[in-house]
Amino acid sequence: METNTTRYWAIHNGMRIGPMSIEELMGYGINGDTPVWRAGLADWCAAGTVPELASIMAPDIPPVPDYPPTYTQPWQQTPYIPEVPRKTEPMPHTYLVWSILTMLFCCVPTGIVAIIYSSKVSSRFSSGDYDGAKHASDTAALWIIVTVVLGLICLPFQILFALL
C-alpha cells in the first residue's frame, strides 16, 4: 500500500526527525501543530492540515502542558471532611416563635429559659461555634417542651382554680 511506503519527516522538539513510517510518526506523540513533511508537499505543513494524518490524529487530546496540571478534585482514599464547618452551614433553629407562644399561653415562666438558650444559638453561631449553637438549639427546644408539658400538667388545676 502506498501509505505504508510513504516516508515522513517532522520537526519535533526543535529537531528534524525522519524518515519514518506513519506509525513511527504517530509514536512521537505529535499534535496538529507539529510541522511535518512528506514527498508531494511544497514545504513543512502543520500535521493537522495533512489529510491522512488529520484523519488518524485524535483532535481533542490536549498537548502536554509545560506546567504541572492542577486538579480541582484530587483523588483520595477517604472522603474529604473539612476540619472547620463551612461558613454556609445554616444556623440551627432558635425556636424564638415557640418560646414567645409558650410564654404567652402556658402561664409557666420556664419559657424565659428557652429564650435565653435561643439567644445563645445566634451568639455561638456568629462566633463560629457550630456545635455549641446546635446544643443551645436543642436545649431551647427541650425547655419549650418542658414548658408545654408543665402547662398541660397544670391544666386540670388551672381549671379547678377557675371553678373555685
Partner: peptide, 22 residues
C-alpha cells in the same frame, strides 16, 4: 367560663407576662 386560670396568679396574686391572653 371555667377556662384554665393562671397558677402563678392564683398562688401569688401577681400577674404573669401571659395573664389575660385567653
Amino acid at each position: 367560663n371555667p377556662f384554665p386560670r393562671c397558677i402563678f396568679l392564683s398562688l401569688s396574686g401577681l400577674k404573669c407576662p401571659g395573664c389575660g391572653s385567653q
